[in-house]
């Protein structure tokens, strides 16, 4: 097993920070490029869809902005999580990097991107300035749940993705569709439930994760069902990660 001391945290942070630094090294704006995508997306779609959906800008744009940055974190965790092992084959085989190290670096990498995206959300807040209550802090709990899920997902799907290469294709196709099924560019009705998808919305786990983070900030209530779904998935997932790591981590390098 991995000894987790201060040095490990330094490694996870430095290695992931460095990935971003290298990616933008030769660009003029550097990591500020991370803000450009969401900023354009929110401005354009905010203007367009508030008209199409017939919702006030001040209501729709914050909904869209927090939806899109949380969604980026989820897709980043999902897509890179399935590739985490076989994209890092050389590191695993040539320098003996362990599975948990790879997963943690990957997780930190997604979180660093997310930290940049938060700046966009803060900007949106200063434009529209809705009333924030202490209830908003609940979204930090939601975020912690999401991070824990990113971790187990990386362990379980990193292993599965190394063995069955189809999985990463399935996941990226799935995430493309899920974006439209999850209330990001559209809103559930005022009562909070349903919207375009009606009762089926509650079958979408991404909706529940998103609710836990977004609703407290926007001041809308969280349905008890969302808590139940998120906690259940977290517990089952972490258990699966424990089993997968114990069962397969030793054989994993021979699959690559």
């Amino acid at each position: 097993m991995l000894k987790i001391d201060k040095g490990r945290w330094q490694y996870w942070f430095y290695a992931s920070w460095f990935k971003i630094a290298v990616r933008y090294r030769k660009t003029m704006l550097g990591p500020i490029w991370l803000l450009v995508g969401p900023l354009m997306f929110i401005t354009m779609l905010g203007l367009l869809f508030s008209v199409i959906m017939n919702v006030e800008l001040a209501v729709f744009v914050p909904h869209l902005a927090f939806g899109i940055i949380v969604w980026s974190l989820m897709t980043s965790l999902m897509n890179s999580g399935t590739n985490v092992v076989f994209h890092n084959r050389p590191q695993m085989i040539h320098s003996g990097t362990k599975l948990l190290d790879l997963v943690m670096v990957n997780l930190f990498n997604s979180l660093l991107q997310f930290a940049h995206h938060i700046l966009v959300a803060v900007g949106v807040y200063f434009v529209f300035r809705w009333a924030l209550t202490p209830y908003a802090f609940v979204s930090i709990i939601g975020l912690i749940f999401l991070i824990a899920n990113g971790f187990w997902y990386g362990v379980v799907f990193g292993i599965l993705g190394a063995r069955y290469r189809d999985i990463s294709e399935i996941i990226s196709a799935l995430m493309g569709v899920m974006f439209f099924i999850t209330p990001i560019i559209w809103m559930p009705e005022a009562e909070g439930r349903g919207g375009i998808l009606g009762p089926y919305l509650s079958l979408n786990p991404f909706h529940h994760f998103l609710e836990l983070i977004r609703a407290p900030i926007l001041g809308t209530p969280i349905a008890p069902l969302s808590w139940i779904v998120v906690i259940t998935i977290t517990v089952l997932g972490l258990t699966a990660a424990y089993i997968f790591n114990a069962r397969f981590a030793k054989q994993l390098p021979t699959w690559l």
Binding site: K3, G7, V22, P90, H94
Partner: peptide, 28 residues
């Protein structure tokens, strides 16, 4: 085990020293 594989090609020599060192469990 391999000269170039354990190193990050896009990182500077100095960054590689830090990355590999941390990975091997040495603190900053």
């Amino acid at each position: 085990f391999d000269v170039s594989m354990g190193m990050q090609a896009e990182a500077t020599g100095l960054e590689n020293i830090y990355l590999r060192g941390l990975q091997m469990g040495i603190s900053l």
